[in-house]
């Protein structure tokens, strides 16, 4: 798996998108699937950078691993921030989305987008690192 390391700051987001976008194109992902993957990445990478590093006053990296095999594109974000499972957060329900904008809590929307944007989203904590795993099926069976 190809690994690229980015500083854990928000200005790395564009570069992270670029790396994954290139691989998505090589894997033949549709424009829509690629766009959704970018949405998911932005959300999770932002969580890592803002909540994992910025707010705790720590510095660290975000590693991006991409692999295209067995008809699926796998993207993994790895970081050294405190263990954080984004799936542990309460997911917004239908009532949330039906509420008018002015009454909505600001959070909660991103993780919903993330989960719905990819075929599979997983979180694990391995070797003292957070691993956020995004899997998108490709049509090259």
């Amino acid at each position: 798996m190809e690994r690229k390391t980015f500083p854990g700051t928000l200005d790395s987001l564009a570069g992270i998108r670029e790396v994954v976008k290139e691989e998505a194109q090589r894997a033949g992902l549709s424009k829509k699937a690629a766009y959704n993957l970018m949405l998911a990445l932005d959300e999770i990478a932002t969580n890592i950078i803002v909540h994992g590093y910025e707010e705790t006053g720590t510095e660290g990296v975000v590693d991006v691993l991409v692999d295209h095999s067995d008809s699926q594109l796998t993207v993994i974000l790895e970081d050294d921030a405190a263990p954080f499972d984004p799936l542990q957060r309460e997911l917004p329900n239908e009532e949330f989305f039906a509420r008018p904008l002015e009454e909505r809590p600001i959070g909660g929307m991103g993780i919903h987008l993330t989960i719905n944007a990819v075929d599979e989203f997983k979180y694990e904590f391995t070797n003292n690192r957070n691993r956020n795993i995004f899997i998108v099926k490709t049509s090259d069976a």
Partner: peptide, 15 residues
């Protein structure tokens, strides 16, 4: 491209 962070700004605007 607009991520959920961008969309949250719309909610923020309304509020």
């Amino acid at each position: 491209f607009i991520s959920s962070a961008g969309l949250r700004v719309l909610i923020f605007a309304k509020q």
